[in-house]
């Protein structure tokens, strides 16, 4: 069972609170979105959850274990793919396993089992610069998944892509998530993206950033094809815009 709980986290930077009293929960196989304007402390919160920052108060637990301020438990994926240009896709994806001390051969074997599922066939031996932006993000997600099969943090993973690629990626993403069952916390400032992908949405607003609302999307998964043009979708959107 994968369960991530963040309790009353406050962090200040140069005597100014960036985020205040943040409490969020992520349950097994859930896809939860953190929606808010840019510069609202979303990324700071992610750095706290991944253990890179230690919060002033509050704590983070994963499956009941306190991991506050400890990197190495939860990894994330950013807007930039951060694939290492001098490693092939296969070796990039295998990186988390190599860091854990696994041998190169067995690490490659393990990651290769997932290439098809992630729509990355025939890219194993290529270098990142030979792939399109969308494909690189797929590889980055697979790398995150290879690090931890419990929880993934995604920080605006698709926002650098053009609109068409982006909607392609959304379809791909929902498809993959359906197959691999990964609990995900997803940062975005794109309201449509949030409604389309998530089970629940936390609204993070104001300075310092606080969680001001929580919206549950009651639309069964997999989402129907025309969901993003349906009346329900527009109503969710209206509700969110009013609250932001």
């Amino acid at each position: 069972m994968a369960e991530l709980i963040v309790t009353d986290v406050t962090l200040s930077y140069e005597n100014r609170h960036v985020i205040e009293d943040i409490s969020i929960e992520l349950h097994e196989n859930e896809l939860v979105c953190l929606l808010g304007a840019s510069g609202g402390g979303k990324t700071t919160l992610f750095n706290v959850i991944s253990g890179l920052y230690t919060p002033d108060t509050g704590n983070v637990t994963l499956n009941g274990e306190d991991i506050t301020g400890q990197p190495g438990h939860i990894s994330y994926m950013l807007q930039k793919d951060l694939l290492l240009p001098y490693r092939t896709i296969e070796d990039n994806v295998a990186l988390p396993l190599l860091l854990k001390g696994e041998k190169k051969r067995s690490a490659r074997e393990k990651v290769n089992a997932y290439f098809e599922e992630f729509g990355l066939q025939d890219t194993q031996k290529k270098y990142p610069h030979q792939l399109s932006g969308g494909m690189r993000q797929r590889a980055a997600l697979l790398r995150t998944y290879m690090f931890s099969r419990d929880v993934a943090l995604l920080d605006e993973p698709f926002s650098a892509l053009d609109t068409l690629t982006k909607s392609d990626m959304h379809r791909w993403y929902l498809d993959v998530m359906d197959k691999i069952q990964l609990s995900t916390l997803f940062i975005t400032h794109d309201i449509d993206e949030a409604i389309l992908l998530s089970d629940r949405i936390y609204l993070l607003t104001g300075i310092p950033g606080r969680i001001t609302d929580e919206i549950i999307i009651r639309e069964p998964k997999p989402r129907r094809k025309d969901f993003h043009m349906s009346r329900e979708f527009l109503e969710y959107k209206k509700r969110i815009i009013e609250k932001l």
Binding site: G51, G72, H73, L95, L99
Partner: peptide
């Protein structure tokens, strides 16, 4: 690249790694 270094740290990489 700082972001890359941070990503590796989040994966539990040591300084040597």
């Amino acid at each position: 690249d700082r972001d890359t270094v941070n990503l590796l740290r989040s994966m539990g990489a040591s300084k040597v790694q």
